[in-house]
Design a protein around this nucleic acid. Structure first.
Lengths: 251, 251
DNA sequence: CGGCGATTTGACATCGCTCAACGCTCGTGG
DNA sequence: CCACGAGCGTTGAGCGATGTCAAATCGCCG
């Protein structure tokens, strides 16, 4: 069940089948969609708006994020995007995007023209696409809870628990570790706390033996305790049919 | 453009036409959907999960909210729902809801069976429904920014600006005032700050001459200044074709 | 080796929370 | 009609969590 595909169609069909049983026709329709594969360097904004021919995309490889810049110049990351995600489905219906989507590492993305997406809509994949959008929205809502109702230690633990579960769901966890090539500054921009305090929170988690973070490699040493510190309950991730071990139960 | 309809079909067709031009057929399809109108008292959860026959609903009258309860017992309101909103579109694809939807005042809701919604999907209203879901998601994302990147005064100002704009869009603003029958406790649960501090923030806004709040009546005395304090830029509300005066410009 | 960005740590300032008290309004029961 | 209590709003005082500033260290890359 390890999925490490770099073929966008395979990636998407895996994702969609995780949501609903797809007929052969639907799979064919999916396979027939032209997808233009593009490589990007790290720290680039993925510009879609100015494209004369509006496109959505699926993230194939790498790590990306969406962020908004506040009036005072601070920036708030509103979502992390992992391979298989379709970050700008949200702005599909709107003419404009209200958040910037940017790569955090070198990324491969698969561009899909919006009119082709709409054809998929008509061809029975509406439910799957709806689910994808709704699952992203559910994560965003949980972020509201994270930022509004939890202190900095708890927030940090929650986000790491979430990322662990999502990485696991796409087969990006080896043992208890995954790669998270982001800076503490970026983490702070997502958690709404200062870099200095991110550092302190991580130190506490490390000292409590819950995680280790060396270079880009994050290890979840005690996922149950980490989830407890972060009040993490993974239901909101809505992994429809395939349940990763995201909801640890004390033995 | 004042809309004060208590007929759910009219409410929805107004909302959808605000997004895309609908054909006569599409309007007919919408009008043909059976909607069961139900009245509810204040402070009730709107239970959909246990219904043997899963339904979504449109809020016709009143004020409602979605909230999640954190592990430590605190609750975080993740959305306010105004007339015309369809609060649980998000959980349509999922078997379960991960947030509680509750009335804050006496409400009238219009229940729509999910299979009827899916028919609308097939009948050309997919784009409109997609837009509704995406617009809600965009608001949630802005809430992430509000909670993560702004201090308590700014948060409060931003939320009031948002509610003013949304109230205005549904014709619920008279002059510079609208009715907001919620307690400071509830406001605090939405803003992620304590009741005491909500009170202090409101006091500051009042003393600066930006708002007045008497009983349930909120008046926005200086919407430009309020927007400035809250770093409010209403683009994210995605009022598609009808632009309320949500984006004040200094003269 | 030198330099730059990221991490780490300490000291101090500030924001927002908690606790506590008081007033106001409204509904209820005597 | 009045007394009372409940819920909400308001305010003050003290404290704790988190931000800011500054500096040292580390690691990587040229």
């Amino acid at each position: 069940m390890l999925v490490r595909v770099h073929d966008p169609v395979q990636l998407l069909s895996h994702k969609f089948r995780n949501i609903a049983e797809l007929s052969a026709e639907e799979l064919d329709a999916l396979a027939a969609v032209p997808i233009r594969v593009v490589s990007m360097a790290a720290d680039q904004s993925i510009v879609i708006q100015d494209d004369p021919d509006p496109q959505s995309f699926v993230l194939i490889q790498g790590l990306a994020c969406s962020f908004k810049v506040n009036g005072d110049g601070s920036r708030q990351i509103v979502a992390f995007h992992l391979p298989g995600d379709m970050p700008d489905l949200l702005s599909l219906g709107f003419g404009r995007a209200d958040a910037t989507i940017a790569t955090m590492t070198a990324c491969t993305i698969g561009l899909i023209r919006n009119d082709h997406l709409r054809e998929l809509f008509a061809k029975g994949l509406a439910v799957a696409l709806w689910h994808v959008l709704a699952a992203d929205a559910a994560i965003t809502r949980e972020w509201v809870v994270n930022l509004g109702a939890r202190n900095s230690l708890s927030r940090t633990a929650h986000l790491l628990s979430e990322l662990f579960a999502r990485m696991q769901a796409i087969g990006a966890v080896k043992g208890d570790s995954f790669e998270l090539p982001i800076t503490q500054q970026e983490l702070g921009d997502a958690l709404g706390i200062s870099v200095v305090h991110v550092n302190r929170s991580l130190k506490t988690l490390r000292m409590q033996g819950l995680i280790s973070w060396v270079g880009v490699k994050v290890s979840i040493l005690d996922r149950v305790a980490l989830a407890e510190v972060g009040s993490f309950v993974g239901d909101y991730l809505h992994f429809a049919r395939e349940k990763p071990n995201a909801l640890p139960v004390r033995k």
